[in-house]
């Protein structure tokens, strides 16, 4: 039984406009870590919007948790490509936002606010944002905003975590640190992850399965299972095995770009 299932899904943003993605089919198991790579503008963010129910397909079907997606679901946590923090809220208040919306936290918020805030603080500390809780988003750097938005996506412990290029604006060291954070979180308490990225090493290091998409209109060109043993360590990224996976993906992307 797949947790997320696409059956021949197509979407055009405007009627009789060009299709952003076309005839996409894929299956994601519960607890699977999936990465999606592809050239810019190929429809990766569109794919995320379809899974989260922010957009409905023109053709085909999207299923999440065994049900056809007809609108947003609260078992999803999503970090958007842009951080999209609310500028009138402090970092902590931004991270707390899902707790004010998603049940059962919503009804418990009154009695357990302190506990939830503690959780938000711990989450922020885990991404290196301790001490920034009371700052407003515009007082944070781009990378810090992105990290805060990851915290917001995680805070309500979603069963399906969607990350749209979450580490794009970070330096190499912070990025690798956050890979490990995400890996540990996922390892400790498995949930399903769909990660969009441009970084092939990131995809191979984190994912069980990598999908390669073609240039627009986006189609799935290749599904590659990453059979590297877990738990994975950063040292793994220097092995031949790892490099082979990256190379193979690289070939496909290069192929896409020639056409």
């Amino acid at each position: 039984m797949s947790f997320v299932r696409f059956e021949n899904v197509s979407l055009a943003y405007t009627e009789d406009g060009p299709r952003a993605i076309e005839d996409v089919s894929l299956d994601v198991r519960e607890g699977e870590f999936v990465a999606v790579v592809g050239p810019s503008g190929c429809g990766k963010s569109t794919l995320m919007k379809l899974v989260s129910g922010l957009r409905l397909p023109n053709d085909g079907y999207v299923y999440v948790n065994g049900r056809q997606v007809g609108g947003p679901l609260n078992l999803v946590g999503m970090a958007f490509q842009a951080a999209n923090l609310l500028p009138w809220r402090t970092t902590l208040q931004n991270v707390m936002l899902p707790m004010e919306i998603v049940e059962p936290y919503r009804s418990e918020l009154r009695s357990k606010r302190a506990e939830f805030e503690q959780r938000a603080r711990a989450q922020l500390a885990a991404v290196g944002l301790a001490g920034c809780e009371d700052k407003f988003p515009w007082e944070l750097s781009g990378g810090m905003q992105q990290r805060a938005s990851i915290c917001r996506a995680l805070i309500h412990k979603p069963r399906l975590l969607m990350l749209d290029e979450p580490f794009g604006a970070l330096d190499a060291f912070t990025r690798e640190e956050l890979w490990c954070m995400l890996r540990d979180l996922w390892q400790a308490q498995p949930f399903t992850v769909i990660l969009v990225t441009h970084d092939l090493r990131e995809a191979v290091f984190l994912a069980d399965t990598v999908y390669v998409m073609s240039a627009r209109p986006g189609r799935i060109l290749e599904r590659r299972e990453i059979d590297l043993p877990r738990p994975r360590d950063l040292d793994l990224t220097y092995t031949d095995q790892f490099a082979r996976h990256v190379h193979a993906l690289r070939e496909h992307i290069g192929h896409v770009r020639k056409h």
């Binding site: 919007k49 989260s52 129910g53 922010l54 609108g71 947003p72 679901l73 609260n74 999803v76 999503m78 958007f80 842009a82 999209n84 609310l86 936002l97 899902p98 004010e100 919306i101 998603v102 917001r152 309500h156």
Partner: peptide, 21 residues
């Protein structure tokens, strides 16, 4: 619409969206 999407993706109602963003 991006800010609205943040709320919508959490399954927020229209009233929630009005109140929170």
């Amino acid at each position: 619409p991006e800010l609205e999407d943040v709320l919508r993706s959490l399954g927020a109602s229209r009233l929630d969206i009005l109140r929170k963003v």
